[in-house]
Amino acid sequence: MYDTDGHELCLIDSGIKSLLNVPIRPNLQVINLHSNFIQRIENLQNVYQLKHLDLSSNQLTYIEGLEGLASLRTLNLSCNFLSDVRGLAGLRSLVKLNLSHNQIEDVSGFKSLHGSDYRLTHLELHGNKLVSRKHVIQCLSGCVNLRQLTLDVDSTPNPLCNHSEYRQEILKGLPQIQSLDNVDRDGISSEKKEVLADIPGKSWLYGKGMNIMNYRVYQ
Results as ranks from 00 to 15, higher is better:
residue 98 N to E: 09
residue 108 S to I: 15
residue 107 V to Q: 10
residue 83 S to E: 14
residue 70 A to C: 08
residue 113 L to F: 04
residue 92 R to N: 07
residue 106 D to K: 13
residue 66 L to H: 09
residue 70 A to H: 11
residue 111 K to E: 12
residue 75 L to A: 08
residue 105 E to R: 15
residue 95 V to F: 07
residue 80 N to R: 07
residue 72 L to K: 06
residue 69 L to F: 09
residue 111 K to L: 12
residue 109 G to C: 08
residue 108 S to K: 14
residue 97 L to S: 06
residue 105 E to H: 14
residue 74 T to D: 11
residue 98 N to Y: 01
residue 77 L to Q: 01
residue 91 L to R: 05
residue 77 L to V: 07
residue 80 N to I: 01
residue 88 L to F: 02
residue 85 V to C: 15
residue 67 E to T: 11
residue 72 L to S: 04
residue 84 D to V: 08
residue 91 L to I: 00
residue 97 L to W: 05
residue 102 N to E: 06
residue 67 E to A: 07
residue 73 R to E: 14
residue 71 S to H: 09
residue 91 L to F: 00
residue 71 S to W: 05
residue 93 S to I: 01
residue 97 L to Y: 07
residue 75 L to T: 14
residue 105 E to C: 15
residue 112 S to F: 06
residue 90 G to K: 06
residue 84 D to C: 14
residue 103 Q to N: 13
residue 73 R to T: 11
residue 94 L to A: 02
residue 111 K to Q: 14
residue 85 V to F: 06
residue 81 F to E: 12
residue 95 V to D: 07
residue 80 N to E: 01
residue 91 L to E: 00
residue 78 S to V: 09
residue 96 K to P: 00
residue 94 L to T: 04
residue 66 L to W: 03
residue 78 S to F: 00
residue 89 A to F: 00
residue 66 L to N: 11
residue 97 L to V: 06
residue 74 T to M: 12
residue 75 L to E: 06
residue 91 L to W: 02
residue 81 F to M: 12
residue 96 K to W: 05
residue 77 L to P: 01
residue 113 L to Q: 08
residue 76 N to S: 15
residue 66 L to F: 03
residue 106 D to A: 11
residue 75 L to S: 07
residue 86 R to F: 14
residue 78 S to N: 12
residue 71 S to A: 15
residue 85 V to H: 02
residue 95 V to E: 13
residue 111 K to N: 13
residue 81 F to N: 13
residue 70 A to G: 05
residue 81 F to Q: 15
residue 68 G to Q: 11
residue 79 C to F: 11
residue 95 V to M: 03
residue 110 F to C: 04
residue 80 N to G: 03
residue 100 S to F: 01
residue 112 S to P: 00
residue 95 V to W: 04
residue 68 G to D: 08
residue 107 V to G: 11
residue 80 N to H: 03
residue 105 E to Y: 09
residue 81 F to R: 14
residue 79 C to E: 10
residue 68 G to H: 13
residue 105 E to Q: 15
residue 99 L to A: 05
residue 70 A to V: 11
residue 92 R to A: 11
residue 92 R to I: 05
residue 92 R to W: 10
residue 78 S to D: 04
residue 69 L to Y: 05
residue 112 S to L: 11
residue 95 V to G: 01
residue 72 L to G: 05
residue 89 A to E: 07
residue 83 S to D: 10
residue 81 F to D: 10
residue 103 Q to L: 15
residue 71 S to K: 12
residue 106 D to P: 12
residue 109 G to P: 09
residue 65 G to W: 04
residue 73 R to Q: 15
residue 73 R to A: 06
residue 72 L to Q: 01
residue 99 L to S: 03
residue 65 G to I: 09
residue 110 F to N: 12
residue 112 S to N: 12
residue 89 A to Q: 12
residue 75 L to P: 06
residue 69 L to N: 01
residue 99 L to K: 04
residue 86 R to T: 10
residue 69 L to M: 09
residue 74 T to G: 14
residue 113 L to I: 02
residue 107 V to T: 13
residue 103 Q to F: 13
residue 79 C to V: 10
residue 109 G to R: 10
residue 65 G to D: 07
residue 87 G to W: 01
residue 100 S to Y: 02
residue 98 N to S: 11
residue 76 N to L: 13
residue 83 S to A: 13
residue 90 G to Q: 02
residue 104 I to A: 08
residue 81 F to W: 07
residue 88 L to K: 08
residue 93 S to A: 14
residue 86 R to E: 15
residue 81 F to T: 03
residue 104 I to D: 09
residue 110 F to V: 04
residue 90 G to Y: 00
residue 101 H to R: 12
residue 67 E to C: 00
residue 76 N to G: 09
residue 76 N to D: 15
residue 109 G to T: 13
residue 75 L to Q: 05
